[in-house]
């Protein structure tokens, strides 16, 4: 008797909980997962394709479906860290197969060499190159993401990727990047400008 009642009690309890769970599963269903949007938010939107996907959004979708999070060189370690925080996956070092982290660059068209073929305009993923057929083209520097996709199609190799120049108001307080100049003490003070000789940057921070 007690054997049977034991089985019945447990089965009854299980039945009850099963009913509750079945109810909850339908009633409290969470709508679609916005994970892709969150990942896309983190990616640097250079649209460079170095990850192997045509643009940041496709890569975001791939990550959401389980692809590695370390394939974005423009984002670098910082992006990998953020993706790791978001997805809970391990933050692996950047996959060198997709390129290495580099300084921010911007495309610059040497205008006297440009033949106006529009190939770069078609290659630019963010429409940051202005120009028309047989007209000299130019890059809108503020809109350029530095993806360098325009470099390869150029038949005359007139596009350079130049590092973005720092302005004082966007300087990042890297004191050790200031070259220490060794000057002749006798020349430093009078008005004639001493020719500074660059030496090791032995600054203290």
């Amino acid at each position: 008797m007690s054997i049977l009642s034991g089985i019945l009690v447990l089965a009854g309890l299980a039945l009850l909980f099963g009913l509750i769970l079945g109810f909850a599963a339908i009633r409290f269903k969470v709508e679609s997962d916005p994970l892709v949007d969150q990942i896309d938010e983190i990616l640097p939107q250079t649209q460079c394709g170095q990850c192997g996907y045509p643009g940041c959004r496709p890569y975001a979708e791939a990550i959401a479906n389980g692809d590695d999070i370390n394939k974005c060189p423009p984002g670098g370690e910082a992006t990998i860290q953020k993706l790791s925080d978001l997805t809970g996956r391990e933050a692996k070092p950047l996959d060198a197969a997709h390129g290495v982290e580099d300084v921010k660059k911007v495309a610059y068209i040497r205008e006297d060499e440009c033949i106006g073929c529009t190939k770069c305009i078609q290659a630019c993923p963010v429409d940051a190159i202005m120009g028309a057929n047989r007209q000299m083209h130019t890059v809108i520097a503020d809109e350029c993401t530095g993806c360098d996709l325009c470099v390869e199609p150029c038949p005359v190799d007139c596009i350079d990727m130049l590092p973005v120049t720092t302005k004082p108001e966007r300087w990042r307080w890297q004191l050790d990047s200031i070259p220490v100049t060794v000057v002749d003490a006798t020349q430093a003070l009078p008005e004639q400008k001493a020719e500074p000789k660059e030496e090791h940057s032995g600054s203290q921070v």
Partner: peptide, 13 residues
């Protein structure tokens, strides 16, 4: 040795 991964072209070019 690092195998270079295929880079995707974002655009038709």
């Amino acid at each position: 040795p690092i195998a270079k991964a295929q880079r995707a072209r974002v655009t038709s070019q």
